[in-house]
Amino acid sequence: MVTKTEETQLNTLENQVDNGGGGAWEYLCLVRKLKVRRSDKVLKYGLSILNDVKQRSSLGPDEWTLYEQVAIAAMDCQCLDVVKDYLKVLQKRFPESKRVGRLEAMLLEAKGSWKEAEEAYSSLLEDNPLDQVILKRRVALSKSQGNISGAIECLNKYLEIFMADHDAWRELAEIYVSLQMYKQAAFCYEELILSQPTIPLYHLAYADVLYTLGGLENLQTAKKYYASAIDLSGGKNTRALFGICLCSSSIAQLTKGKNREDKEGSQLQSLAVKALEKDYKQRAAGNLPLLSSALKSLILLP
């Protein structure tokens, strides 16, 4: 999970490295720790470290981790020649390693030779049928071939065994959302909220899915989850604030004429509007008229 402090740290370090201020190895470590996808930069700075024999040997055993990281980044950037060179080095150092075998299979995947990659993964699975990473790679393999239903099937099978893997649940939720299967996606997000209840982004995503599903009951639940996302993020999540506004306005439209006094709801919505206005005044004063006209169209502002 990337917290606010870590994000600022990453950004300053990236700026420093981009401007030639040094600290490339710390940057690469941080990228690895936070699991962010900055393949082009990892490739650029990782290569410069690995090409410098002095710098490389000063890393000690971390050198091989860096090789793996840069190799994957190079696959992501389609620099397959570099990957091949790296794999040769790694194979020489670690013959018969499963981890190197996985990298080879990933190279096949990057080349687009799906059949060979599938065979390579299957042979790796024969030795260890419960290798989580390889099982996940197979899901990614079907996804990159465009076989989304196959990926869902694979992922469901995987989740039957490894129910506590929240990354997999998130992937499944995102696939379902991309297919507009919102009910299934909502189930996945419920699992995620259950396993990690303090992460506001899951509450937010669940609320988004519920809002998209529509219906009075879903809208009211969505509003509650937007509120909990605001609670967990200290009111600094603009999307959740907008979510409250949208939910309130659609609930008001649905219950129009039923004349139900919903005092708490209207208070929440006016608070959200106030917080949004304050946030816009602070950070983007030029867009304030845009915000007020948008809120007016939602009949939230007089």
Binding site: M1, V2, T3, K4, E7, L34, K35, V36, R37, I72, D76, E109, V133, K136, R137, V139, A140, K143, S144, D167, A168, R170, E171, E174, I199, P200, L201, S233, G234, K236
Partner: peptide, 13 residues
């Protein structure tokens, strides 16, 4: 405060 989730690198395509 968590501002972003890690890129799901295990499922990277």
């Amino acid at each position: 405060r968590i501002v972003s989730l890690p890129a799901n690198l295990d499922f990277m395509i």
